[in-house]
């Protein structure tokens, strides 16, 4: 049995490593994404509001009004008032201020929440009823927060498409039919596929992890061992999901559609790009059933908060249970080919 698993595993690894284009893409894409997002969102903080300012001069003069010194607002000059009003109507900006007249005029879009908040900001020069307190702490850059998301997302695409699609291709071109004629069992075949992808994705992710660490020096405060366990388990869970997609069909288009249907909600709802903090409960519940969610939660907990394995145990257990169920279903439903 071990010999047979090894044969398939070895051949699959060769196939993967010789497919240079796919291999390069697997390494290059996450690095580019992390660096790109890091550059775009670097700086002290992101501006929360966009306010267009109309005044006599072409360049904006931020000393013209005390409001223009408010932090986290992106003030920019406009030269055509009517054009700016049209943009405001289309929600392309949050507020428009006219400093060329006395008294100063402003417009907001009645249906825009940000406009409402800006208006309140102008109205309240001071908050007299509250005592002011501040907290300080090391800020987590967006890129620190984003990195586990990108690595997890890359893992997801690689595991789902790399396994699901490949098995469907094998079935379509008749390679599975040829394997069926040998003593190889579905369990051995599936095990080899899982192991092959797991080894390769862990290797690639480690390379990307080390590379981006060198380039942008992101935050890693927890245990590497815990991160390795979580990543390996998450990858296995994602691979099992991919296998489940590929148990029967010989249609690459159908499999592609199905894989897209699975990956897109995960990409949007599992917290790759933004935190699910504060989203409605049902969104979080839906996100909780995706394998990517516990993987990202646990990784961030380890990397950003310095959590150990015991602290991410709920996610580890969730991933382990999901993996077991998905793999069992995959092995049970698997067919080499249509009769």
């Amino acid at each position: 049995m071990i010999d047979r698993i090894w044969s398939i595993l070895h051949a699959r690894n060769i196939e993967f490593l010789r497919d240079r284009a796919a291999l390069g893409w697997n390494i290059l894409l996450p690095v580019l994404l992390v660096i790109g997002m890091g550059v775009i969102f670097s700086g002290d903080g992101r501006a929360m509001f966009k306010v267009a300012v109309y005044q006599q001069s072409v360049d904006i003069d931020l000393t013209a009004h005390p409001f223009l010194q408010t932090r986290f607002i992106n003030f920019y000059a406009v030269s055509d008032l009517d054009d700016a009003k049209a943009k405001l109507a289309r929600h392309q900006m949050d507020m428009l201020i006219n400093l060329a007249v006395q008294p100063t005029q402003y417009w907001i879009n009645d249906s825009a929440p940000k406009g409402y908040i800006l208006e309140r900001l102008i109205a309240s020069d001071e908050i007299s009823d509250f005592d002011r307190g501040t907290v300080t702490g090391t800020a987590i850059r967006y890129v620190d927060w984003l990195l586990p998301g990108i690595l997890g997302m890359n893992m997801m695409f690689s595991c789902l498409f790399g396994v699901g699609y490949v098995v469907v291709r094998y079935r379509k071109n008749g390679f599975l039919k040829r394997l069926k004629a040998t003593p190889l069992t579905p369990f051995e075949f599936l095990t080899a596929q899982v192991l092959s992808r797991l080894i390769l994705i862990m290797l690639l992710t480690s390379i990307v992890f080390a590379g981006t660490s060198y380039l942008i020096n992101f935050k890693m405060s927890g245990s590497y061992l815990a991160l390795l366990v979580v990543a390996a388990l998450g990858a296995t869970c994602l691979i099992s999901t991919g296998l489940l997609v590929a148990v029967r069909t010989a249609s690459e288009e159908f499999a592609g559609g199905l894989l897209n249907m699975i990956t897109w909600p995960m990409m949007l709802l599992s917290g790759v790009w933004f935190s699910l903090e504060g989203t409605p409960q049902y969104v979080q519940t839906i996100a909780g059933i995706f394998p990517l969610t516990p993987l990202l939660d646990a990784s961030r907990h380890i990397m950003l908060d310095g959590a150990g394995l015991s602290e991410v145990m709920p996610q580890v257990i969730q991933l382990a249970v999901m993996t077991t169920v998905l793999l069992a279903m995959g092995a049970w439903l698997f067919r080499w080919q249509e009769d």
């Binding site: 047979r4 060769i14 196939e15 497919d19 094998y170 008749g174 390679f175 040829r178 040998t182």
Partner: peptide, 29 residues
């Protein structure tokens, strides 16, 4: 399955493998 050998009318092999690697793949099964 252990004692029969088969050549289908259309047999697909795994991509990116050489002749020797393809033989070894099946040899190992």
């Amino acid at each position: 399955r252990a004692e029969a050998g088969m050549q289908f009318q259309f047999t697909a092999l795994q991509d990116h493998l050489t002749v020797l690697e393809s033989l070894k793949l099946f040899h190992g099964l």
